[in-house]
Design a protein around this nucleic acid. Sequence first.
DNA 1: CGCCGACTGTTTGTCGACAAATAAAATACA
DNA 2: TGTATTTTATTTGTCGACAAACAGTCGGCG
Lengths: 235, 235
Amino acid sequence: MAEDKDKQLTHKRGYGVSTVYETLRNEIIELKLSPGSPIDEQQLSDRFSLSRTPIREALVRLAAEGLITTLTNRATIVSNIDFLGLSEFFDALTLMYRVTTRLAAANHVAGDIEAIRMLQKSFENAVESRDVLGMIATNRDFHVAVAQAGRNRYYTELFTRLLDEGRRILRLYYSSFSDVLPRQYIGEHEDMIQAIISRDIDGADALAAAHADQIVSQIRSYITADSRQTARLTL
Amino acid sequence: MAEDKDKQLTHKRGYGVSTVYETLRNEIIELKLSPGSPIDEQQLSDRFSLSRTPIREALVRLAAEGLITTLTNRATIVSNIDFLGLSEFFDALTLMYRVTTRLAAANHVAGDIEAIRMLQKSFENAVESRDVLGMIATNRDFHVAVAQAGRNRYYTELFTRLLDEGRRILRLYYSSFSDVLPRQYIGEHEDMIQAIISRDIDGADALAAAHADQIVSQIRSYITADSRQTARLTL
DNA sequence: CGCCGACTGTTTGTCGACAAATAAAATACA
DNA sequence: TGTATTTTATTTGTCGACAAACAGTCGGCG
């Protein structure tokens, strides 16, 4: 458990809370904090050199997002990954893929495409350099950018949450990633960009649906393949 | 400003926060707290006979839900109703109507129908007794029950938020409600229940879509009709 | 007479401490 | 030796108070 040196990151008034919030959020999503592990307020208080009050506020925010679970008067733990509810997750994820890509084709304006293209480049780089973790992160950013081009905050918000939850799940299996397979995603992304540019709404929808199915079935295969891991963490 | 007698509602440890949270949540949704009005922590502290700490926690939760907006180091206010983003809202609302009703037809189990029927009865009663406010609330409960029968927490959560946001909007115009019009909604609800029972997924979808369009266009007509109200609150 | 800066007051963000709730340890008893 | 009960200890939830940030006011100066 190597964690300190986050000390004294900022002294400005409202900044402490968001720093703690974002830091913990990342650590949870990147599985640096494993699901089910307890969160000690005192410990965090020491780590960030802050009183328990701002720590608590950050925790409440994380709880509202479902990233941590608070057992009242008892402990608060990092939320477990719900393997039994995975089909719900996949269903919602697929729908959001489709809807956001659709809307991007319909509503995108000037600067949107450039932003999307940039993130697609980052994704390509991550794939080229076989940076699996970076690949997961940049793929998420790419689709968030598409969602933002779609201009519906409700979808964007839900989609972001789902993608981040997906990052947690993928982290569990990132060791099992083959080095070749992700390459096809680059092409799929390119096709989606083309459909968006030419405002081909139904085409974008179809591509997104296929892309989603691709990813979902891939995750599914990881899970069934690596049942030992799963059993260890379902608990 | 008639508000006290919420005092000493509970002394148990974790209960204070949720009481404050739920109370404020209702008051915001029912427009007892008008959009844009400031929230004074001190005042709430006196009102609920609690320290500012639990009040603050409740406010953070409400902020995470988007019901209040906090201007850092300055005031925190009840979130304004975003009239410019209404089409986003309607789009998401319609999709959730469809998706949840679809899933209800596909996934409902034994007890679900009874729960839905009960809430439909409440809705009928509200309509019969011309209780407009009750009608809005029971309509929301009916659709939440349908969503729960669909068994997808992501949809249910988003849908609930959207329906509650819709309650706020409808409250603005409840005076303009005609006494006859809502009666048709009863029939639409009945049709949806039938489609759900007979597991007619596409039928349920179509009915939900029509129902959503009905409601959306009705709200739209209120807004365009009563532009004075709108202008006053858009700000 | 109008504009700029210091001052005052209020409200938020943070702190350290206390008390309730629960889990773990220790003890008593069968 | 095993189980039930008390005791201890840790951790959460709440409190009152202080300090920073900001808004509005007042007074000085051009």
